[in-house]
Computed example of a mutant assay.
Amino acid sequence: MKKAILISALLAAATASLAGFAAAQSTLATAPETATVNSIRGVDPETQVTVNPVYHQEEGRKNRNYRAQPPIIPHTIEKYQIDLHANECLACHDWKNAADRRAPTLSMTHYTSRDGVQTDTVAPRRWFCNQCHVPQVDAPALVDNLFKGSEE
């Protein structure tokens, strides 16, 4: 008896789903082909919009706002390749290259595996630098920011 009730309930649900799908298909079929899309910006979507850069990259090291904050990148990384096969940040910041390039060396935490083993290569979990580190730019604030660093 319970199986019969369950099967009939499932069939009713499937029938309702198919009916809703058919209604949606018929609505789409009758929609005019010249439907317009309204843009949030109030611009025709077909119009090419040019965007001027509103910021410039700041050079030099920045102070951190709290003790465990990852350092901010003081240079552009716009064309850097950081993927599974390459990481251009290591060309300067890897411990083997940092002295020659006069760049800060990565923290030893970047050379520690998830099991706590120290290695000579960057740990896979620390490979994608821009996962924690971001370039510093002089950009206008999009929203009010009331954040105060731990030293203030």
Rank of each mutant, 00 (worst) to 15 (best):
T121L: 07
I82E: 15
I7T: 13
L146M: 07
P70G: 02
T27G: 09
R67W: 09
T119N: 13
P45M: 06
A68L: 14
A23R: 11
R67N: 08
S8V: 15
D115F: 09
H93W: 02
L142D: 09
A141C: 03
L142N: 10
S150I: 10
S39M: 08
A14T: 07
I5F: 10
C89L: 01
M1K: 12
A23F: 12
E33H: 11
Y66S: 06
S17I: 12
N87A: 01
A24L: 09
V43C: 01
V137N: 01
A19I: 12
S107N: 15
A99C: 02
I82R: 01
P124C: 06
I40K: 14
T34S: 15
R64M: 12
I40Y: 08
C132F: 04
C89Y: 00
R125N: 09
A14L: 11
T121Q: 13
R61S: 09
H93Y: 06
P70L: 03
T50G: 04
L84H: 11
Q118P: 08
L84S: 11
Q57K: 05
I82A: 04
L10C: 14
C92T: 01
A141K: 15
E88H: 11
L142M: 12
F147L: 10
Q25I: 11
P124E: 04
N97L: 05
P45T: 04
R67E: 12
G116S: 07
P104S: 06
H56S: 10
V117N: 11
Y80L: 02
L10V: 11
N87E: 02
V137Y: 03
T119P: 00
S8H: 06
I77V: 15
V134M: 08
A68P: 00
E152S: 11
C129P: 00
Q57T: 08
N63L: 13
W95T: 05
A23D: 12
L11K: 08
H56D: 08
Q25A: 14
R67K: 15
L10G: 15
A31H: 05
D44T: 11
